[in-house]
Amino acid sequence: MSILAWFTFGICFILVIIRFFHDRDVRFLLIVFPMLLLILIIPMILARMSRKTYEKADAQYVGKTEPYKISEVTLQKIGESAEIRGIVEKVSFKWLNRPHFLIDDGTGRIKVIIFTSPSDDIRVGDKVKVRGMIMRGLFGNKTPIISAISVKKLKEEIC
């Protein structure tokens, strides 16, 4: 669950406690408590469903993606499926469960985005295998990025 979801839950919980101690109304708790549980449960369910969908998509692309060096990923290859391997140099937006990675394979660097949290906990310095689609960078950027369906850690000897 994202930090944003935990933050929302925390604020709602504090407001419920304040309201309860102000009014001492037990009926209020009986109504609000299930709602607080839903604020926790719904994001967890959606994240799990999203991960399962990405895992199924990844299984369909096994053997169908071309391995690329990052230097070979160009705007002319937009729309092609690709697989790259490299080292994570930067991780951002992890707190939203929509992480962006900067990957370096020694021939170049590329931004990788995935719209769900990966099954592995990816950190800076990890060696990873990325499978996804080559697309134009966000916001009119003239550099290619990879919209990933899979970002997995590799064992030291594989990369």
Rank of each mutant, 00 (worst) to 15 (best):
I45P: 00
D58T: 07
K52G: 13
V62H: 09
I41H: 10
K64T: 05
I41Y: 04
A57L: 14
I70V: 06
L37A: 03
V73K: 12
K56E: 01
D58R: 10
K69H: 11
V62N: 08
P67Y: 08
I42T: 07
I45K: 08
P43W: 03
E55F: 10
L46C: 03
K64Q: 03
I45T: 10
I39G: 07
M44Q: 13
I42K: 10
M44N: 15
S71I: 02
T74N: 03
Q60Y: 13
L46I: 12
Y54I: 12
T53V: 15
L37G: 07
M49L: 13
P67G: 04
T74P: 01
E66H: 14
T65M: 12
I45N: 05
E66T: 15
I42H: 05
K69M: 07
K64Y: 10
K69S: 11
G63H: 01
V62A: 06
A59G: 05
Y54T: 03
S50I: 08
A59Y: 15
E55A: 11
V73P: 00
I70F: 01
S50P: 01
G63T: 03
G63W: 00
L46Y: 14
K64N: 07
T65Y: 09
A47H: 10
L37T: 06
L75D: 00
K64G: 10
R51Q: 08
K52I: 14
L38E: 05
L37S: 05
K52M: 15
Q76N: 06
K69Q: 11
I41M: 02
L46W: 11
S71P: 04
L40W: 00
E66Q: 11
T74R: 02
L46V: 09
E72H: 02
E66R: 11
Y61P: 13
L38N: 09
G63M: 00
E72C: 02
L46Q: 15
Y68N: 04
I42P: 03
T53D: 15
A59T: 13
D58F: 12
I39W: 01
I70Y: 09
I45F: 05
L38C: 05
S50D: 09
K56W: 04
S71L: 03
I45W: 05
Q60R: 14
K52N: 11
L38P: 08
E55T: 05
G63K: 11
A47C: 11
P67L: 08
D58S: 04
I42D: 06
V62T: 03
V73M: 01
Q60M: 12
I42Y: 02
R51S: 08
Y54E: 12
A59I: 11
G63D: 01
A57W: 10
T53P: 10
I39R: 02
L38K: 02
E72F: 01
A47K: 08
R48C: 13
R48H: 14
T65W: 09
S50Y: 04
I45C: 13
I42W: 07
K52F: 13
E72G: 03
K52W: 13
L75V: 04
I41F: 00
K56S: 05
L40R: 04
K69Y: 12
Q60V: 15
Q76D: 07
Y61W: 13
D58I: 14
L46T: 09
V73A: 01
K56N: 09
K52Q: 07
T74W: 06
E72T: 00
I70H: 15
P43E: 05
